[in-house]
Amino acid sequence: MNSQFAYDKKHPIILSSKHPFTKSLFINEHERLLHSGPKQTLNSIRDQFWPIGGQNLSKQTVRQCITCFKAYPKSIQNLLGHLPLDRVKAHPPFTVVGTDYCGPFVIKDRKGRGSNLSKCYVCLFVCFSTKAIHLEPVTDLSSEAFILCLRRFASSRGMPSKFYLTMVEHIVVLSPNL
């Protein structure tokens, strides 16, 4: 009542959001403002008109605008594979472990001239609940070398209740009884 604004601003024309005139008014205003967002479009219209349900109509107008759709496409979310139950459950660290090898690495047996070069590998133990890793050096890819590596791991971290061994073709799940 005591506002300094003009009469038309203080008492805007009430419009129904379902009427075709109101819809075309929103489309025209959205394009006039160079494809502005829903809030700016609604605020510009509210200078002269008061649309009932204007927020929903403004959002609908921007969503149906082909130019805005092309300018701001929705990115596609990658579908993730289903994780094993052991990966989702909370366990103490290194209770459920996945193992893999990396390498080969070339190492010297000593510094200086006449040193011999040999291959070595690294056995990678990954905790399923915390994603922590433990690295153990391995001399070769034999099962005896892996058992020795597993014993070194178990002496420092404790024996895991379940292993996931990665192979080229498939994953093998073991429950250790060493």
Rank of each mutant, 00 (worst) to 15 (best):
V173A: 02
F105K: 05
P176V: 02
F163C: 02
Q55K: 15
K119T: 06
P51F: 02
K9S: 10
I45W: 01
V173P: 00
L79I: 14
L25H: 12
K23A: 12
G112H: 14
L34K: 09
R63D: 08
C149E: 04
L85K: 14
H170V: 03
G54M: 00
V96F: 13
H30Q: 15
D86Q: 14
D140Y: 05
L141N: 05
S24D: 13
L178Y: 01
P73N: 09
G37I: 10
K9R: 15
H82K: 13
F128H: 07
V138L: 07
F21P: 11
Q55P: 09
Q77E: 08
Q4Y: 12
R87L: 13
F128P: 02
F128T: 06
T95C: 02
V168P: 01
S129H: 08
Q64I: 06
N177S: 02
F105M: 12
M159R: 01
G112P: 11
V138E: 05
S155C: 05
L178G: 05
K74F: 06
L124P: 01
S75H: 13
P104W: 12
R32Q: 10
F26I: 04
Q40K: 15
I133M: 15
K119M: 07
K23C: 13
N2M: 13
N177D: 01
M1W: 11
P176F: 00
S24N: 14
G98E: 04
P84L: 13
D109K: 13
G98S: 11
L42N: 06
H82Q: 11
D109H: 13
C102G: 07
F21Q: 12
P84H: 12
Y164T: 00
F146P: 01
S16F: 00
S36C: 15
L150E: 03
K131E: 09
S75R: 14
K59S: 13
I66Q: 04
P137K: 03
H35T: 10
H91E: 07
F49C: 04
I107T: 15
H170S: 09
G103K: 07
H91T: 14
I171T: 08
P176N: 06
K111Q: 14
T67A: 05
P160G: 03
G81S: 14
K18E: 08
T166H: 04
S129C: 09
E169F: 08
K162W: 08
N116Q: 10
V62Y: 00
S24G: 09
G114L: 01
D140L: 03
P12Q: 08
I14L: 02
S161L: 08
L85I: 15
I107S: 15
V173C: 07
T67L: 04
